[in-house]
Amino acid sequence: MATGGRRGAAAAPLLVAVAALLLGAAGHLYPGEVCPGMDIRNNLTRLHELENCSVIEGHLQILLMFKTRPEDFRDLSFPKLIMITDYLLLFRVYGLESLKDLFPNLTVIRGSRLFFNYALVIFEMVHLKELGLYNLMNITRGSVRIEKNNELCYLATIDWSRILDSVEDNYIVLNKDDNEECGDICPGTAKGKTNCPATVINGQFVERCWTHSHCQKVCPTICKSHGCTAEGLCCHSECLGNCSQPDDPTKCVACRNFYLDGRCVETCPPPYYHFQDWRCVNFSFCQDLHHKCKNSRRQGCHQYVIHNNKCIPECPSGYTMNSSNLLCTPCLGPCPKVCHLLEGEKTIDSVTSAQELRGCTVINGSLIINIRGGNNLAAELEANLGLIEEISGYLKIRRSYALVSLSFFRKLRLIRGETLEIGNYSFYALDNQNLRQLWDWSKHNLTITQGKLFFHYNPKLCLSEIHKMEEVSGTKGRQERNDIALKTNGDQASCENELLKFSYIRTSFDKI
């Protein structure tokens, strides 16, 4: 039985969820670079991206490699990797027998973001014989899940209580170790020597080791999670996991709180800001991140802002960003909400898709409305799209047979046209069989910064309504002859009103 693990408890099935942008060198404390989270699957090609990484700022997932063999891993080693800020997950990587050479110096898994409450997941690794993470000293947050690894031993010899604050939620089941077939031998045991430290858990006094050649490092209890030197002297209180010299914040392997210019500090002093819960960055760093993602459509890219001495992905609820200094300031009234469309555009074809934009005031991208039916549609669209004030790209209304009016965009005031449909149009209306009105132009103002209007096959939309939009939106004169079809717009509506004058002759039985 794995020490510190839980057996036999019912657990939810383990679901495996399925960018080499360097964020800056980590400095003297770390020998390499800070790398983003990685999802490495199918083959070993991307694994080489770990070569210079000291910190993975995010998670590391290595999974679904069915053609790899043990010899493929023999020359692979990433000794610079010290810390993973989120979680480490391995799933069905064939041929991998140990992690001792792959990650010989991995010391800390912070667990800032977890995989279903777990910071370390080893699942269905069919050839893994031992973990071998002999320098792993601290899992700051989260638990361990090690399950269905039929060859995995050296679990009962690990004292997880020396690595985690609590072992109650560890789930370590259905491994070879369960069948008591392992016969784990710690260093020196074969020669009758006791080389590794022994600890007591559940009444068992057991030597602690990761492999037959690597003991588990056990520091004096007084050192807590700070770690200790090879001689057993406690590291500085700002260290986490390990250090090369005692009581020196510049000799830590990793930091308990924050890293700044080669030393570990309790908090980031001005003019620095907390970033990702582990390091200090200056304003320029946060500003660069903001600008890199301002026009990016890459998933996970955030326009970072500053709030409460932190550089964070977005302002919290009730705050909006001051564009001059990136500071989050309290909103006066309802907060603006910028919604970034991942692929640059979004099609609204149902109430469900409209709900995804609920509360958005600025759309960074283009909207395509293609709704053919739905219950209580006008009210639903207004509830979900009615706060949109600005669209950076274009607005396209296409084959939306259920629409009679666009009044559900009740606050839309600006279409920038930074991206144009077919390279020309910022407003595009095609084949809307029941569209009769755009907006009530006596109450609604709309500016279209650039781009043209396109109207074709809107049989109940009168040309007068379209011409009014040209005047109000500032697009009059931009359109070419064929942009607004004269014969297919309003051709099934009563669009022309003329005053009919009647004269009559009164007659009676005795007068003409």
Rank of each mutant, 00 (worst) to 15 (best):
M321P: 13
V206S: 15
A190V: 10
N325E: 14
M83L: 08
Q61M: 06
C311R: 04
I62G: 01
Q204V: 06
T45I: 07
C223F: 11
D184F: 14
P270D: 11
D178K: 10
V253S: 13
T140S: 07
P249R: 05
C196M: 04
L96F: 00
C243V: 00
D288W: 06
P104Y: 00
K310Q: 09
Y118K: 02
C328V: 04
L89K: 00
E97P: 06
L332V: 09
P36Q: 13
H214T: 05
F283M: 14
D248G: 02
K129C: 08
L260M: 04
R162I: 05
P249L: 06
L155R: 05
C328P: 02
F78Q: 01
P104F: 01
S112M: 15
K129A: 08
N150W: 15
D86F: 00
S54Q: 13
N117I: 00
G32K: 03
R297N: 09
G300E: 04
N117K: 01
E231K: 08
L44C: 11
P220V: 04
L332N: 14
Q303W: 04
G58V: 00
D39L: 00
F66P: 01
L155C: 05
C219V: 01
Q303L: 12
K191S: 13
Y94V: 04
L63A: 01
Y30I: 00
N117P: 01
L332I: 05
A230S: 13
L164T: 13
P246V: 04
P79W: 06
H290L: 09
F116N: 00
E151A: 13
G333S: 15
D177V: 04
E33T: 07
T229A: 07
C293M: 07
I122G: 01
C186Q: 01
N117Y: 06
L64Q: 01
C335G: 02
C328I: 02
D248H: 06
E49G: 09
Q245S: 07
H212W: 09
A230F: 07
R263G: 12
R41F: 00
I185S: 05
Q61Y: 01
Y273P: 03
T211A: 13
K224Q: 09
Y87L: 00
G188H: 09
L332Y: 04
F283T: 04
D177T: 04
E314I: 00
D248R: 03
N257S: 11
P197M: 09
M65W: 00
F115V: 01
R113G: 09
L289M: 13
S296L: 07
I139V: 08
T229H: 05
N52W: 10
Y154T: 03
C219E: 01
H214K: 05
A119I: 02
Y87D: 01
Y134E: 02
I146W: 00
G241F: 01
H307T: 00
C215F: 05
R113S: 02
T189S: 09
G192W: 07
E181T: 03
K191A: 08
N308M: 08
I82H: 10
L63N: 02
T45H: 07
R110Y: 06
C268I: 01
G188Y: 09
T329R: 07
C243R: 01
Y134G: 08
N138E: 00
D178F: 06
N150R: 14
D169Q: 13
P336K: 07
T68N: 03
L47E: 03
K310P: 01
E266V: 05
S284G: 09
L240R: 05
V93K: 01
N150Y: 14
I306G: 12
V173L: 13
S112V: 12
F78S: 01
H212D: 15
E124H: 00
N105W: 02
L164Q: 08
K193S: 06
P220R: 12
T211V: 08
L44Q: 12
P249E: 11
N309P: 01
D169W: 13
T329C: 09
A156V: 11
L106Q: 00
L120Y: 01
K224N: 07
H236S: 12
D72F: 07
D75N: 14
M65H: 08
N179V: 07
S166G: 08
L60R: 00
F205H: 11
G111F: 00
E207Y: 14
S98A: 03
S213T: 06
W278Y: 12
L260P: 03
Q61I: 02
L63S: 00
V305S: 11
Y118I: 04
T157L: 02
P197S: 15
D177Y: 02
Y273I: 06
V34A: 07
Y272S: 12
G262M: 13
V265E: 07
N282S: 13
H226Q: 07
I158T: 05
C234F: 00
Y273D: 00
E124V: 03
R256Y: 14
M137A: 06
E151W: 10
N42H: 00
E180T: 07
P336H: 15
D159M: 03
F285A: 06
